[in-house]
Design a protein around this nucleic acid. Structure first.
Length: 281
DNA sequence: GACCAGGTATTGC
DNA sequence: GCAATACATGGT
């Protein structure tokens, strides 16, 4: 990746990166696309506007200085990882996998905040994506810090841990409210410690997460993949279940190897964007 | 009004 | 163990 400071912006040439696919392949919930080709979002206590540059494969990071770019956004978008090498390790294993990769070869797995990821995917259970985004946004507006007019950070686990079911009632998140509170309390107290979970064997990290009420295998796996960047984590939701049954019969996550989570993201986005792939032929 | 949505906890066999 | 079922809410 090459990048340079241009005025108040950073312009970066980033291979194997598709901002649209990366932000809207279902791994995050707070980014928005604007009509002018810009994307904007809030992550890690920072606001970013990013848009495609004039040259192929370039992006403009608006109002970002070199330090913030290198210290935060490169990590957030996982830009210092060689996705070509990952794709090479996956490509050729299976025809359907090839198709999934080719459909959106610029997807990268974000390094999101683990607490935000855990909380968001608790909200995601038995829910649809527009409503998930809405609840997350309302959660931020109600309890997150307003760092500029109309812009809110995701509320910390400590903040949410002090809330009650009545506080969360306006979110209309139903049976998930007590799950959110239990997760927040576990994270705030240190009973669930993400820095430790980063280092434990993945089976142990998974079990630790599942001690939280409302966190089963799927939410735990999403937290591992999107929040803790455990790229071998392989979330299986209804879509992936159908995809595995129809496109990869007899295979399990083991087949995809140490980058199974990346493969999962290509496959998930592929079947979501063309559901007819899964209909019986 | 039934059915569904990036599931999970509980129950019944 | 494993298959049903309830769980809030809002949209078709």
């Amino acid at each position: 990746m090459k990048y340079s400071v241009q005025g108040r912006h950073i312009v970066a040439e980033i291979p194997d990166f598709d901002i649209e696919a990366t932000l809207f392949c279902g791994q995050c919930f707070r980014w928005k696309k604007y009509g002018n080709g810009c994307y904007a979002g809030i992550a890690g206590g920072k606001y970013l506007k990013i848009s495609p540059g004039e040259k192929f494969s370039t992006y403009v990071f608006h109002n970002v200085n070199l330090e913030e770019f290198e210290d935060f956004w490169v990590k957030y978008f996982d830009l210092d990882r060689d996705y070509l090498q990952i794709k090479k390790s996956l490509f050729g294993k299976n025809l359907q996998l090839n198709r999934a990769i080719s459909h959106a070869p610029g997807i990268r797995i974000l390094r999101q905040d683990p607490w935000e990821t855990l909380c968001s995917f608790i909200i995601s259970q038995n829910n649809n994506i527009p409503r998930i985004s809405g609840i997350v946004e309302n959660l931020c507006e109600m309890f997150g810090e307003e760092f500029s007019p109309g812009q809110f950070f995701f509320p910390s686990a400590k903040t949410v841990a002090r809330l009650t079911g009545a506080d969360l009632a306006p979110l209309r998140c139903g049976f998930r409210a007590p799950y959110i509170l239990d997760a927040a309390q576990n994270v705030a107290s240190g009973a669930v410690n993400f820095e430790i979970l980063r280092t434990l064997p993945i089976e142990k990290s998974r079990l630790e997460l599942m001690k939280i009420r409302g966190v089963g295998p799927k939410v735990a796996e999403c937290t591992l993949l999107y929040g803790l960047h455990r790229l071998e984590a392989f979330p299986i939701d209804v879509w992936m279940k159908r995809a595995m049954a129809i496109l990869f019969p007899g295979l399990t996550s083991e087949f995809f190897g140490k980058y199974a989570g990346v493969a999962q993201q290509y496959i998930f986005h592929y079947v979501r964007s063309a559901p007819e792939i899964l209909s019986a032929d």
